[in-house]
Nucleic acid binder design. Structure first.
Lengths: 212, 212
DNA sequence: CGATTGAACAGTTTATATATTAGTCAGGCT
DNA sequence: AGCCTGACTAATATATAAACTGTTCAATCG
């Protein structure tokens, strides 16, 4: 998915643009500067990318592809139960978001700007992460630790419960440690929910549905 | 907490300001306009409020006080179990936020602007709502349906799990119905978590903690 | 004398003019 | 031909000037 589909020249352009995006941000890097870095004219950039925003989109796609790859390592961690992997997944996702927010602010800002214009990118990204999380849940179904009938639906619900720790709204307010403690509390609770459903099968859903 | 502490003149000022805030927004209403509405000079406003922002803060405090009162009615609903009240609480909170976002956009905008300058107001609000939620949890402890040792901590965790449905980030993306369905899914899961903990007592925490 | 005013000040917003930039394309180069 | 250039344009952004607004306070009023 990352740069492998791209022409050699396109890769060069993307690399030059990425350097400037990270240093100066999206709005403060001009097409002429990117072209100069690549020893070509600005007009030639448009032979490889339809617009400046598309370069930014590719930049974000690469970043997020790396993040999904990173999260995918949780799947192969040896000696970790599915429940532990659910926790690993969200703690790692939180840690990556928190760190990127604090020490790559320009990249974070660029992501936010891009998503305003290209919301589809955010959705695709959430779905890609959801597939990793879904694989963890399926593993748990296979070994009997979970009893989830609709994996995609539960995946979305899990993502909802952890949303506060993946959106930057809170990243100003508290330190990484305090937020991680709160996230662990959330995970404790939802894992206990899984434990209940695993022990009670379909009845688990009936019980909570009855509370409506 | 609302306007009862206020001087008669201060109430008049607040009422005039509120009308203009709702119609035109915070930045587009001037102190002179508020003063004119009250048949007084702009300078005289400062005998009753230290600054324009403080008028806005009072306006938001009144709005939010009404919202907390509204949520508090969930506590007295007859024939509802504590689990049902937890669900009622969050569905009502979501509904109020969603509706206010869509049909009082100026009030929503003013809230957001104010919180940037006065974050303390947001914290106080969250704590006030947390106290209502905490009372529901204590009720559940009393009648044996829950088994929560640290009510304030669990209150915060519950607020975290539902955060996505109380922040306006998603209010553009989906309709009220679809979001309510997702919120119900979240509540189903955390209530099952409570069910597990209630059935297993302290062991519940041990089980999920062991997944670390 | 306490309550109120409105002119004055500093800071900010808005309006206007100037400059820069994203994107195009007719032509040049290889 | 296929790739690239760089002047050109419309749109955006920056810089500057004018107008306005929040806030203060000496003077006025009742």
């Amino acid at each position: 998915m990352p740069t492998t589909n791209l022409d050699e020249t396109a890769r060069q352009i993307l690399a030059a643009a990425s350097r400037r995006f990270l240093h100066y941000g999206y709005k403060k890097t001009t097409m002429s500067e990117i072209a100069d870095d690549c020893n070509m004219s600005s007009g030639n950039l448009y032979r490889y990318f339809p617009s400046k925003l598309d370069i930014a989109e590719m930049f974000v796609r690469v970043l997020r592809g790396e993040q999904v790859d990173n999260l995918r390592t949780v799947l192969d961690a040896p000696g970790r139960s599915p429940a532990q992997k659910v926790r690993d997944f969200f703690l790692l996702k939180f840690k990556l978001a928190y760190e990127r927010f604090h020490d790559k602010p320009k990249a974070f800002e660029l992501s936010s700007e891009l998503i305003l214009e290209r919301p589809k990118v955010a959705l695709e990204w959430e779905n890609a992460e959801g597939r990793v999380l879904g694989e963890i849940l399926s593993e748990g179904n296979a070994d009997g630790s979970f009893a989830i009938d609709d994996v995609p639906a539960i995946t979305k619900i899990l993502q909802n419960t952890a949303y506060r720790f993946t959106s930057p709204a809170l990243f100003h307010e508290s330190g990484e440690e305090a937020l991680a403690v709160e996230l662990n509390g959330v995970i404790d609770l939802v894992l206990d929910g899984f434990a209940w459903r695993s022990a009670h099968g379909e009845q688990g859903k009936t019980v909570s549905a009855a509370s409506r």
